[in-house]
Nucleic acid binder design. Structure first.
Lengths: 344, 344
DNA sequence: TATACATTGGAATACGTTTACAGTGTTCTC
DNA sequence: GAGAACACTGTAAACGTATTCCAATGTATA
């Protein structure tokens, strides 16, 4: 803990700094005697190599910057935890940038690779964290970057391929909708996420596909634009209840929204699933404790986080990536918030 | 974005690196003409200063490491978000270390200040992230560190005073218990958090104080040792229901536990608050959407995060800190999960 | 025995920045 | 108009490490 540097340590031992460095970070390039001597001396003196110095020399920071619109979102939290864990195992630290969806902040955090504060980026947004200006420049070089859960349009990315770790949103959404259709539901309302995000679009697609392939009409007035929040679920559900012809099922595009939805329904004395069925998406840890327990799509949170980091590190290490897209399996979890369509 | 350094930029402009550095980071120490010239050239060339180099020189990283047992805990998430935001405003980045309560990981992350990867630490644990061995060493110097919500025993800290940002857990717990007592409850069960954490002990104290000052007995068999999790709430509640003499109220030491508790009660067809009252602690964003909406103690999440960062940066900047402990106001939020003691 | 070869340690350098110090020219003061 | 004060810029030395050369030593080969 004493503020000792490699030079001082070398001097104490009467050897060169090179030997110290080797003994500590490349132990096999040095004799056993030397290795032991240096290592014990280092421990004794409480020597801690200054990572700044090392980083400057090697131009590797062993940091990963995670750019995320809302770090306190429950689904994200799960992924984050896994990210951090995997990164730590691989010898990387994780920095977080919570952007609140603000473009300017995205750019700021995106810049951290350029300024050598991080070796790569994991992004939870559908936009790249670089200015159009930067990306248009012909000297632009895409830094190591992996996207989590949100597809980035190749056009927006200026032709760059952005690796992606995700589930198949279309398919998951189709299955979830099909589950409702199988229960006899015909009028199925949807509360979407932010309409600008591809995950929302994809889930909407899945919904439409399921409806059409069962010969059911897609009713535009049943599609409500929301956000991935509790509040949206609550307020929009009230709106839905005011409709002349009420749906018998509500598809919420995330679990938080579904909780808001359940809340509003119960507030108005609807019985779930007897009067109205509700489904969510994500399977956050609370979902099974909701009342009623929520039918939803479970995303493999831990695997998503892990894969993001693995792929990113591969890119950082300059390895060839076979597939730019990792699609992980989801799971339809049927609980108590869905039931047969009520007779009218 | 082109990989250009300060030297090259200086050479291009036919000036010294000193002038470039000054023009960019100390603009007032340079003539207007020079400033403009350098700034436009820098922008044009896409020059991004290498922070590693700067850090090495200044021995400031502008990083803060946050050591936290569970990053995905809903209460923590809120604080984290605020932390990150405040830090960013003050020009600091935040690194996260999720320790899962594992001692070894705490140490690893605690070491990041010694290895110059961060300037200070914000800690969410009741233990310091240093080995006893290190702390015993007389060359040990406490790095800038602030504790969030958890008191650290001075003895454990080897006599060091550890700044703390928290609410008054004893008082909050007392008020919460008093609320139940005011409703006529006498047999009030408690589901604690991890018994090793001071916040739990303090909340327990508050409970006992309230009981005693109302002349009610503290019944040891009503105090159940749990953890700050959903699962604990659910399983322990079932245990409580099996007791010969059932309590009429349950005090859960965090909202997640309370949700688990509500779940178990409903599963066994208890009506809340008619049969049993339930209170939580924290007021996580879900609390008001629970059914019934949860009576709880609201912690000022945003302020906690902000204060932690402010105090830490003051310490880093070597400022004298007036008070080593910042106690923020909490708020008793009465919702629908509590009601009068039922007649038996 | 002489030569090639493997192993090991040391000296020096580079990474990219900031900053103390020195130097130059300009303006101000009396 | 001389000297001081000032504003600005350049020179060069760090910061702490990893690594590339080289030299030296010991070891196996011809």
């Amino acid at each position: 803990m004493s503020d000792i540097g490699i030079k001082q340590l070398a001097k104490n031992l009467g050897i060169s700094t090179a030997s110290v460095s080797r003994a500590l970070s490349n132990p096999d390039r040095v004799s056993t005697a030397m290795r032991k001597r240096v290592q014990t001396a280092a421990k004794l003196a409480g020597y801690r190599p200054n990572k700044m110095g090392a980083s400057l020399r090697t131009s590797k920071t062993r940091n990963i910057i995670v750019i995320i619109p809302d770090i306190s979102d429950t689904f994200n939290s799960g992924v984050i935890r896994s990210l951090e864990r995997t990164a730590a195992n691989r010898g990387y630290s994780v920095l977080f940038g919570d952007t609140q969806g603000i473009r300017e902040l995205e750019i700021t955090y995106g810049d951290m690779v350029q300024t050598r504060q991080a070796d790569g980026i994991i992004c939870f947004s559908h936009r790249l964290p670089f200015t159009d200006e930067d990306m248009a420049s012909d000297s632009f070089k895409m830094p190591p970057l992996v996207n989590s859960c949100e597809y980035i349009d190749a056009a927006q990315a200026g032709g760059h391929i952005v690796p992606l770790v995700t589930i198949d949103n279309v398919k998951a959404s189709r299955e979830l909708t099909q589950h409702l259709i199988d229960l006899g539901h015909i009028d199925i309302a949807v509360i979407t996420g932010d309409i600008s995000s591809p995950s929302t679009t994809q889930r909407l697609q899945g919904y439409q596909q399921a409806m059409l392939s069962s010969g059911l009409p897609v009713q535009q007035q049943l599609i409500y634009e929301g956000t991935y929040t509790l509040e949206a679920g609550s307020t929009i559900t009230k709106e839905i209840l005011l409709a002349k012809k009420r749906p018998t099922a509500i598809f919420c595009m995330c679990d938080e929204t579904a909780l808001g939805c359940l809340y509003a329904l119960k507030e108005h004395n609807f019985s779930i699933p007897n009067d109205i069925s509700v489904v969510g998406f994500d399977d956050i840890k609370f979902a099974q404790y909701f009342s009623p327990a929520l039918t939803t799509i479970a995303q493999p949170v831990a695997e998503i986080g892990q894969q993001c980091v693995e792929v990113l590190i591969d890119i950082i290490d300059g390895k060839e990536i076979k597939k730019p897209m990792v699609v992980l399996p989801h799971r339809l979890v049927i609980r108590d918030s869905t039931g047969p369509r009520p007779d009218r």
